[in-house]
Simulated assay, not measured.
Amino acid sequence: MDWIEELRILPGVLYAMALGGAIGFERELKDRPAGFRTHMLVAGTAALLLGLSRMVLEDGHYAGRGLQIDPLRLVEAVVAGISFIGAGTIFARRGGRGVEGITTAASLLAVAAIGITVGFRYHLLAAAITVLTLAVLTVLRWFESRKPADAGAPPK
């Protein structure tokens, strides 16, 4: 395979990193345990792994050698790996104050899914999911902050 061919997945990885970075920037602004760089790396790595699997499947060098790659298995592997990172963000903020970091762990899973979506070349869908994720993290947080302090307390 020509080295130029190897670079064809790079724009997708960069795009996934940019989308993940947008979500990571929001987490960074809120001083969460996983921020800008972490979200970029998760999204970019997911896109790279899926793009690489597509590239290997299309490579004539491996034709007829019995090589099989199931993209859905690769998705499962990405999700399993992100689970460990997500668990780390939850434990990182525990400190006796209850469990914190669950939303950041969920945002890491979301950017992994965005990277996977880019890796499958569904660029518009990835952008739409990024916008929806940012809406959940910002707009819904704004609505939560407007809730009266005793709204969840049982009546006396």
Rank of each mutant, 00 (worst) to 15 (best):
A43L: 10
G119V: 06
E6K: 09
G12C: 01
G115T: 06
E6M: 13
A149D: 14
R141Y: 12
K30T: 10
Y122C: 02
E100H: 15
A126N: 06
G115K: 03
G96C: 06
F120L: 15
A87I: 13
A43W: 09
Y62K: 01
G152T: 10
F143S: 07
K30F: 06
A112W: 02
L108D: 06
A149E: 15
G86R: 01
R27E: 10
R65V: 08
R65F: 10
E28S: 13
M40C: 13
Y15L: 15
V118L: 08
F143M: 14
L41S: 03
S53C: 10
V42I: 14
A87C: 11
I114F: 05
P154F: 10
G95L: 11
L74A: 07
Y122E: 14
A151I: 00
A127M: 13
R54F: 07
L7I: 10
G20L: 07
A22M: 15
A43V: 07
A46Q: 05
H61W: 12
L124P: 00
R97M: 12
K156M: 02
F120A: 13
A112S: 13
S53M: 10
T133P: 03
G81A: 07
V56P: 05
K30V: 04
D31I: 00
I4Y: 12
L52I: 07
Y62M: 07
P11H: 04
K30R: 14
R65N: 06
R54C: 02
M55Q: 15
G119C: 05
A34D: 08
P154N: 06
A46G: 05
G21S: 06
G21T: 05
W142D: 07
L140Y: 11
L140C: 00
L109G: 10
L14P: 01
S145V: 00
E76H: 08
G115C: 08
G20C: 09
L52K: 03
R8A: 09
V118W: 03
G21Y: 04
V99L: 15
L52Q: 05
T89S: 12
S107R: 00
A106R: 00
P155L: 14
F25N: 01
L57R: 10
A63Y: 12
A18K: 00
K156H: 09
L72P: 00
W3S: 11
R146I: 03
F25A: 11
L7E: 02
A77V: 11
I9L: 14
I116R: 01
L72M: 14
F143Q: 06
R94C: 03
G101I: 03
S107K: 02
T138Y: 11
R54T: 09
D59F: 04
G119I: 02
G44E: 09
E58S: 13
